[in-house]
């Protein structure tokens, strides 16, 4: 117990008696965690945008008006049975007309002309959502080769097919870019933090030698430095979290306005998953500083 208290005391003394160096190390750690969080944040935003657009992609099959409802329902069951299908929704001619009227409630002339027609003026349709965006062509192919193809008057998908392939391409590029950027940031961060801690420990090289000559073991010397690294890492994670929260809170209205129609708030997201961010940042910062300290100190322990 006394050795734990002693280690904490030594670590606190290191921080306090080298205040400026500790502040600089902390500042760099904060910058590193901010950079890493930024990359993760951009990945999240990109992912959310892609998911939102993907959710809007669907296939609408409009059936000839002469096709009996039972055949349309059979076609729906057929599509539901396909492995690529996530959901299929049937819209009867009556429901289609009801929706149409609701969406044109202000157009009295149109509503008046519609009232002259019977309630099956619009065709029955099914709306298909696939499990994955890449599965839509397979679904279309299955329908094309099925006996239900002859009932289909129109397929509302061709307009989206180009957009889907572009989204797929964008997703792939975004993921690859994020990976490259994250890796570059990680390497830069490791180099910067490692060198900062190396300077701190270089500053202590004589004292480390003296400690060894007086009979201190390697772990006795190393532990306060490791604890100091962990302390600064945890502190950096806390500061990054507070700064990030403040920034997201202040920019939330602008972000919401940008993503209008997608119901996405980065602040709300961070609020829900704050512990993932905090512990992720803390573990990252602690591992980075502790490993750097361990490597940097080893060369001075050979006395």
């Amino acid at each position: 117990m006394s050795s734990i208290i002693r280690t904490i005391r030594f670590a606190a003394q290191h921080v306090w008696r080298n205040l400026w160096l500790s502040v600089v190390t902390l500042f760099l750690l904060v910058l590193t965690t901010i950079s890493m969080t930024l990359v993760v944040g951009l990945n999240i935003v990109g992912g959310q945008i892609i998911t939102a657009i993907e959710q809007k992609v669907e296939i609408d099959l409009y059936f000839y008006q002469y096709v009996p409802e039972q055949d349309v329902l059979d076609a729906q069951e057929f599509v539901r049975g396909l492995p690529e299908t996530q959901s299929v929704q049937y819209t009867s001619p009556q429901d289609a007309l009801k929706e149409f009227k609701e969406s044109h409630a202000d157009d009295t002339a149109l509503l008046a002309s519609l009232s002259e027609l019977d309630d099956s003026v619009l065709p029955a349709s099914i709306t298909i959502k696939a499990t994955e965006i890449s599965s839509y062509p397979a679904i279309l192919e299955s329908i094309k080769n099925s006996p239900y193809q002859e009932f289909v008057d129109r397929t509302d998908y061709s307009d989206n097919s180009e957009m889907i392939s572009r989204i797929e391409e964008l997703t792939r590029i975004a993921n690859q870019s994020a990976l490259v950027i994250s890796t570059i940031f990680l390497i830069i961060s490791i180099i910067v933090i490692f060198n900062t801690l190396r300077i701190t420990i270089y500053n202590y090289r004589e004292e480390i030698g003296i400690m060894k000559l007086v009979g201190a073991t390697n772990s006795f010397i190393r532990l306060p430095f490791v604890l100091e690294g962990a302390l600064l890492g945890a502190l950096a994670a806390g500061i990054t979290l507070i700064l990030g929260y403040g920034l997201l809170f202040l920019t939330d209205d602008s972000v919401r306005a940008f993503f209008e129609g997608y119901n996405f708030s980065l602040f709300a997201y961070a609020k829900t998953y704050w512990y993932y961010f905090f512990f992720g940042e803390m573990i990252g910062a602690i591992v980075l500083s502790v490993v750097s300290s361990m490597i940097a100190i080893t060369r001075y322990l050979k006395v």
């Binding site: 003394q13 060894k212 009979g215 201190a216």
Partner: peptide
Amino acid sequence: RQIPVLRRQIGVVFQDFKLLQR
């Protein structure tokens, strides 16, 4: 790993003092 044990049994006084300055 036995060196610290040996050094704890010998008091050492150095010309350049070797005090922990902090």
